[in-house]
């Protein structure tokens, strides 16, 4: 047997050793995970985890979090419309109807100083016409947000909060958000209004317990 043969054998043995150690490590990790899962009584650990009452004692997984915008901190600067990585921002206007005054003269819908309270384009505040106004009974109207048209500029949110009841507000729409590790809107938000929230409480809605929706 030459020196070269001895070297080849050593290399093979070394690879075999590394393989064994790897397999043993994997088995140990798997055993640990199963033990921990059983201990926590958790059957949903993993990416699908939405948190559970026992999550405080859970050392298996950190419940997933998502980006959300705190309406109480938002200053309606308009940057949500321009700073999202998506072509049309994932931040959209939400409306808590229970807080709405159903005003005929809605400052979230009409340009300040609008001469006529009609739905003509020149009277509307929204740059994309994303708010639908429907007559209920004199002098009350109902307002709904067309999600596909909303760009999250917060112009209506500003008007409603300043002159009305503040029933319009921005939220990150999780049907659209890519949940980037470093949210480009959050990074530039001048009010630090963005935060990570548990996916089980993904929305910070006004008027808790009341009907929400677009």
């Amino acid at each position: 047997m030459t020196d070269n043969d001895q070297k080849q054998t050593s290399r093979r043995e070394m690879l075999r050793l590394v393989g064994r150690v790897g397999v043993l490590g994997c088995l140990a990790s798997l055993a640990g995970m199963l033990t921990g899962r059983l201990r926590a009584g958790c059957i949903e650990a993993g990416p699908a985890c939405k948190g559970c009452p026992d999550q405080d004692g859970c050392d298996l997984v950190t419940p997933p979090t998502v980006w959300q915008l705190d309406p109480a901190k938002c200053t309606q600067c308009g940057q949500c419309a321009t700073d999202c990585v998506l072509a049309q921002s994932a931040v959209r206007c939400f409306h808590t109807h229970a807080l709405c005054g159903h005003c005929k003269l809605c400052f979230g819908y009409f340009e300040p100083g609008a001469r006529v309270l009609s739905s003509a384009a020149e009277n509307q505040l929204c740059p994309t016409g994303a708010i639908q106004r429907r007559f209920v009974e004199d002098p009350y109207y109902t307002y709904t947000i067309e999600k596909d048209l909303c760009i999250g500029c917060a112009k209506c949110v500003h008007g409603c909060g300043m002159f009305g009841n503040g029933s319009l507000y921005l939220q990150v729409d999780h049907e659209l958000c890519k949940n980037c590790n470093e949210c480009s809107i959050a990074r530039r938000c001048p009010a630090n209004a963005f935060e990570r929230v548990p996916v089980s409480e993904a929305y910070l809605l006004k008027g808790q317990g009341e009907e929400e929706g677009h």
Binding site: Q76, C77, G78, Q79, A81, T82, P112, G113, L125, P127, I151, C153, A154, K155, H158, G159, M162
Partner: peptide
């Protein structure tokens, strides 16, 4: 400032 003027709520004249 990069936000277009059309996105800003403006009551400055009042």
């Amino acid at each position: 400032p990069r936000v277009p003027q059309a996105y800003l709520y403006d009551v400055e004249q009042y």
